[in-house]
């Protein structure tokens, strides 16, 4: 298995839906842990198999609640599949949310090191990247200000600047391009193109066809937790539209 490869085999992620919400021991004891027995399983994702070879770029599309984010989190290793197997090889840079893990009280500088450590980098390794990150973020002297004083654009810029410099084998991006001003968005897109050119595997969640087509030749459509299509982006989009239009012509999708 090579770095950058993703194999999903019959992946299912199930949540227990409790009829009664029990979040305290008192409630659990009071109804004798009945909530465990009456719980129903809800599959946010089921029977999803995808092979993503190193260097491939794939866009994930689907309606809200189709399981896109769940799939992304499964690939990132945040969620463990309750069925099947999700295997990845190499370092993953999860841009599931930019600036996840920033501590508002700490300065931008401290947060760069904290975020680096969250991604498994040592202080020394981050020190080597530090100037590049500050340059990319265009924050200048603001880097020594607590990030709670940052504007949301500055916040996202620093987040992207860190994520783009972690030498990933797999880059996971969830709608982050919707932040920052247009110029910075362009810069992010260019950076992602660079990654693509360097042969880095790229998984992207998108609601926009134009961006998806620009970045990924391949797309997978998720519909109610199932993989409904996997193929060229344009065809995937057709399928997505068709599914969105309501009950599909095929009998199997009539709810």
């Amino acid at each position: 298995m090579r770095d950058g490869q993703i194999i999903l085999q019959d992946v299912g992620v199930g949540y227990r839906i409790y009829r009664e919400k029990v979040s305290t021991l008192k409630e659990a004891v009071a109804n004798r842990f009945r909530h465990l027995r009456t719980a129903e399983k809800f599959w946010a994702l089921r029977h999803v198999s995808l092979q993503i070879p190193p260097g491939d770029a794939i866009a994930l599309v689907g309606h809200n609640g189709s399981g896109k984010s769940t799939l992304l989190k499964t690939i990132a290793g945040v969620l463990e599949p309750s069925e099947g197997a999700a295997v990845t090889q190499g370092r993953i840079s999860p841009m599931i949310e930019l600036g996840a893990g920033f501590d508002p009280e700490l300065s931008g500088r401290d947060n760069v090191y904290l975020n680096g450590a969250l991604l498994g980098f040592s202080h020394k390794q981050m020190a080597a990247k530090f100037q590049r990150i500050v340059d990319f973020s265009e924050l200048g002297d603001f880097i020594d200000l607590p990030v709670k004083n940052y504007s949301s654009g500055m916040y996202a810029r620093l987040g992207f600047a860190i994520a783009q410099d972690v030498e990933p084998d797999i880059l996971i991006v969830d709608e982050v391009l919707a932040v920052g001003d247009e110029r910075f968005q362009e810069k992010c897109k260019r950076r992602i193109q660079d990654f693509r050119a360097a042969g880095i595997t790229f998984v992207f969640v998108s609601h926009s066809l134009s961006v998806a087509r620009e970045l990924c030749p391949r797309a997978a459509v998720l519909h109610h937790g199932r993989l409904a299509f996997d193929g060229p982006t344009d065809a995937a989009w057709e399928r997505y539209r068709e599914l969105e239009r309501g009950p599909a012509p095929g009998p199997v999708f009539q709810a």
Binding site: I7, Q9, S49, V87, R226, L227, F229, V252, A255
Partner: peptide, 20 residues
Amino acid sequence: AQETRPDAVAPQAQPLPQGT
């Protein structure tokens, strides 16, 4: 209602690589 359609990718039974 969610049976996969024929054009959906069928789960392939492939042995997962070792050491992962």
